[in-house]
């Protein structure tokens, strides 16, 4: 499978283009490309330091958020009901090729 292309807007508003490899979660793709995603729980939906905003179109292609994910997100800085996701919970999928991801503010 080929990589997905990804556009990332960081917390300063700068744009980065990167490759998302099939064996990475979105969090891993961000973290391994040096974006400031702490991921302090290692991707187990516990810390919310991997919170990102997706565009509505991409968001709608994804399944429901788990209860843990939702509870963490609702309390997060800048929560968007139809945009916020924990990037560690997003596996690679072709449907997400070419999306733009915005890093949520830290709190």
């Amino acid at each position: 499978m080929s990589n997905n292309k990804l556009t990332v807007i960081d917390r300063e508003g700068s744009t980065h283009r990167l490759e998302w490899e099939p064996d990475q979660t979105l969090m891993e793709a961000l973290r391994d490309n040096d974006l400031p995603v702490l991921a302090s729980c290692g991707g187990t939906a516990s810390c919310a330091t991997c919170h990102v905003f997706l565009e509505r179109e991409a968001f709608d292609t994804l399944g429901e958020r788990s209860e843990d994910e939702l509870e963490l997100l609702v309390e997060a800085e800048g929560y968007q009901a139809c945009g916020s996701r924990l990037s560690c919970q997003l596996d690679f999928s072709r449907e997400l090729n070419g999306i733009t991801v915005t890093l949520a503010p830290e709190d």
Partner: peptide, 11 residues
């Protein structure tokens, strides 16, 4: 059994 208070707690 729930994380609703977790982030507020840290704040």
């Amino acid at each position: 059994g729930g994380l609703a208070d977790f982030r507020p707690a840290r704040k």
